[in-house]
């Protein structure tokens, strides 16, 4: 805006920025009508949209098993979980809309490949045990990632995350319970559980937390530099509260004893307790390996988006009908049958 060119407007903006900075510094909450820097708004839109997209894309690998769940109890649990994810997508799109964007535009951006969902879901769910591994590991990682977001500086996002986190924590327990049942079952069931963990561990560790952003978490300070710059900015604004690597460590520390209790092996030979640090050591994330998984040019990255796009296009006539019905002046209010 050219308004900032006049000295009065500039002074006003300085004042608004000072107020914003002070609010952030004292741990206050920014609300939709409050002034906020463009960069803050853009970072939030990007992050919340990516999070919302991840919820609805994340419905796919588990959703594919709804019709094959091996007991009616597990089927009910899985339906409820996938339903929760649709709900999380809706809370988060609503939170993003408070920043002046439209859900339809965000979905279009996802469908056109301009916005992304978490690359974790660019992995296939190959067996029933994958639904357990996803819930235990991927949702487990999500809870660790997201718990601090309940105190993030943007009010609508923080409030959405409080609801999301409660439900996610329940999904983790359900996932662990599913894996426990498999591990206590036949040798074939246990083998299926181990195979799923072998395939979902690294995507959870690497992709759910983002790139290394500390020298300790990356192979070296140089490779961690780009991630560190983004994290510094997000932390200064109170959007993020911890580095990716801190949260990743917390996740590993949580999972190792759980895996031991299940009798499953996490596929990282470097995992061992480090008395001095008071944490488990593990192989640093080699981000270059994951750059490929992050790209659009993998079968599953394309498939997830194609599935979304097909559903969206197939349903266009339904949405058009609903919009036309709602817009019609002569439409009587919907009766409650």
């Amino acid at each position: 805006m050219s308004a900032s060119a006049t000295p009065a407007a500039s002074a006003e903006q300085d004042e608004a920025l000072a107020h914003f900075d002070a609010l952030i510094a004292e741990g206050g909450t920014i609300e939709p009508r409050d002034w906020m820097p463009d960069g803050y708004r853009r970072m939030l839109i990007r992050q919340i949209a990516q999070h919302a997209h991840s919820e609805i894309i994340g419905m796919q690998p588990e959703g594919a098993w709804l019709t094959r769940a091996p007991s009616l109890h597990r089927k009910s649990v899985l339906i409820a979980k996938v339903q929760d994810e649709a709900g999380h997508g809706l809370y988060l799109y609503s939170a993003a809309e408070t920043l002046g964007v439209d859900r339809a535009d965000l979905l279009d951006a996802l469908h056109r490949g301009q916005q992304r969902a978490s690359a974790t879901f660019n992995h296939p769910a190959l067996t029933w045990a994958d639904t357990g591994a996803i819930a235990w590991l991927t949702d487990g990682a999500a809870v660790i990632n997201q718990a601090p977001l309940c105190r993030t500086s943007y009010g609508p996002y923080a409030r959405a995350m409080r609801r999301v986190c409660q439900e996610e924590a329940f999904h983790v327990r359900q996932g662990y319970d599913l894996m426990r049942a498999l591990c206590e079952g036949t040798p074939e069931q246990k083998a299926m559980a181990q195979d799923a963990v072998n395939r979902w561990w690294l995507p959870a560790v690497a992709l759910m937390f983002g790139p290394p952003d500390t020298a300790a978490g990356g192979a070296d300070a140089r490779t961690a530099a780009p991630g560190a710059a983004v994290s510094r900015r997000a932390m200064a604004w109170g959007i993020k509260r911890h580095t990716n690597d801190e949260l990743r460590q917390r996740f590993v520390d949580q999972c190792v004893p759980q895996a031991e209790r299940l009798g499953l092996t996490l596929p990282d030979r470097a995992i061992r307790w480090n008395e001095e640090r008071g944490h488990y050591d593990f192989t640093p994330v080699d981000w270059d390996v994951y750059r490929q998984a992050l790209g659009d040019e993998t079968h599953w990255a394309r498939q997830r988006i194609a599935h979304r796009r097909t559903a969206h296009e197939d349903g266009a006539w339904v949405r058009e009908a609903a919009a036309a019905y709602a817009a019609r002046a002569d439409t009587a209010p919907e009766e409650t049958a």
Binding site: G63, I79, V82, Q83, A86, G87, L90, A311, G315, V318
Partner: peptide
């Protein structure tokens, strides 16, 4: 239908009914 519905709201509604 779930993940294939015309809207996310409908994914949610149909899963609720299925449940």
């Amino acid at each position: 239908w779930i993940t294939r519905a015309p809207t996310v709201e409908e994914d949610l509604a149909l899963s609720n009914i299925a449940l």
